[in-house]
Simulated assay, not measured.
Amino acid sequence: MNSLDIDKPASATRVVVAMSGGVDSSATAALLKEQGYDVVGVTLQLYDLAASGISPGACRPNTCCAGKDIHDARAVADALGIPHYVLDFEETFRKDVVERFAQSYLAARTPVPCVECNRTVKFRDLLGVARDLGADALATGHYVRRRPGSQGAEMWTGRDPARDQSYFLFATTREQLDFLRFPLGNMVGKDETRAIAARHHLPVAAKRDSQDICFVPDGDYAALVARLHPGAARPGEIVDGAGRVLGRHPGLIHYTIGQRRGLGLGGGPPLYVVALEPESGRVVVGGREDLNCPAVHVEAVNWLGGGETELRVAVKVRSTRPPAPALLRRLPGDRAEVILDEPEQGVAPGQACVFYQGERVLGGGWITPAREA
């Protein structure tokens, strides 16, 4: 059994590496090459800045800008001496990720497009490409761990909690997890990853991490939705919990649950967005205490473990939140109810709710308004 838990010598094991042009995926390719694996790099062309109406000069620091990333991935592959392919997945990415992102905002939900990208383009389509190339595994630079279990491969959080990316991978199926590998999951700190890249003299060793959504490098989500769906920014009323009109807004696509800035309501006590009503087009605001959410309803749940109907877990309701203790109840039709020990604030429909037992990922689903549960 080799280091990837495959019953072959490393030299006889072909691994396709998803190479984004960043330091994580580049270090992954370098590490596997160093260990003697037959490594093939694949980079996906996912979007065209010019076609989207965004000038490359508008890309903010620490964001992906498609052309440069593909160039960087190719340069890394050349430095490592491995085959490298660039595949055009723009249409699939537009349909499965960008359009779903826009539709979520139109439905007054706050999406997590990285989950959709991993679930579809990367772990569905790219995994198929890897199989077509005769690979034994598809490796990525994500900071999570894969462990063998009694019922197949299990997903565990990255060893370094500060870099753990399991929240964005909850929708990975058990079948996909059997084929996937995450060589960086045991790394502690980004310095360890950069040291691998530096040891192999890779041109991206000092490249900064990308932090924003790759297809919105200027950070203007509402403008993207408006470009895709002209007229989507329908003005409406800003009201309090009693329905009293406090002001007007330029469109629901500009707001998310928990938002405080940009309400334009003048002085007085701080107000927060506590609800968005797509039917009436109203933004409902209230005090901070109105953001408290004692229970979360979840749909389209992907289960990776935990067969009990009711079990104690920790859950994350946003990628930036620490796990919170809760009681998880399975419901019919891939739904679940999460009863939080302490209310969470700013729980937004459209975000993911991911379930954990210790460091193991049990799965997760999409937060839905209570009225739809």
Rank of each mutant, 00 (worst) to 15 (best):
A348M: 02
V42W: 00
G41Q: 06
G258T: 09
R131I: 04
A195Q: 09
I70R: 01
M1R: 13
A198E: 15
L46P: 00
D341I: 06
V121Y: 03
L311H: 02
A29C: 08
L177Q: 01
E116C: 09
D341C: 05
V315N: 02
V86M: 02
L246T: 08
F93E: 01
D160S: 05
G189E: 13
L177G: 09
A336F: 11
D88H: 13
T368L: 08
D218C: 09
L252T: 10
A27N: 12
V285H: 04
A242N: 13
L252R: 06
H142Y: 02
G266M: 13
V17S: 02
P9K: 12
G262N: 14
D220Y: 08
Y143I: 14
D178T: 14
L44W: 02
G128P: 05
A73F: 00
D164Q: 02
H254R: 13
P56H: 13
Y272D: 01
L126G: 03
R312G: 04
R145S: 02
T172P: 00
V296C: 04
A135Q: 07
S210D: 09
G241P: 00
A195R: 03
G307Y: 04
G287P: 06
A300K: 11
F89E: 05
A222W: 08
W156Q: 11
L31A: 14
Q176Y: 02
R14Y: 05
I367Q: 05
E34Q: 15
R234S: 09
E90I: 13
L304H: 10
G236P: 01
P369S: 12
R163T: 11
E116S: 12
L180F: 05
G264I: 10
A18H: 09
A10N: 10
F215K: 01
R329L: 14
R194Y: 05
E344N: 01
G267W: 10
N62L: 12
D136T: 12
R244T: 13
D341A: 13
G346R: 03
R329Q: 15
H142E: 03
D209W: 00
R14M: 07
P325R: 08
H201F: 09
V315I: 15
M19K: 01
T13W: 00
V298A: 08
Q211F: 10
S55T: 06
G128S: 04
P332F: 01
N292M: 08
A139I: 03
G365M: 13
E116G: 07
E90L: 07
V86E: 11
D209L: 11
D160H: 03
G267K: 14
G36A: 07
P332H: 01
D48R: 07
Q345H: 08
L169W: 05
G268I: 15
N62H: 14
P269R: 14
V239I: 15
D24T: 12
A205N: 09
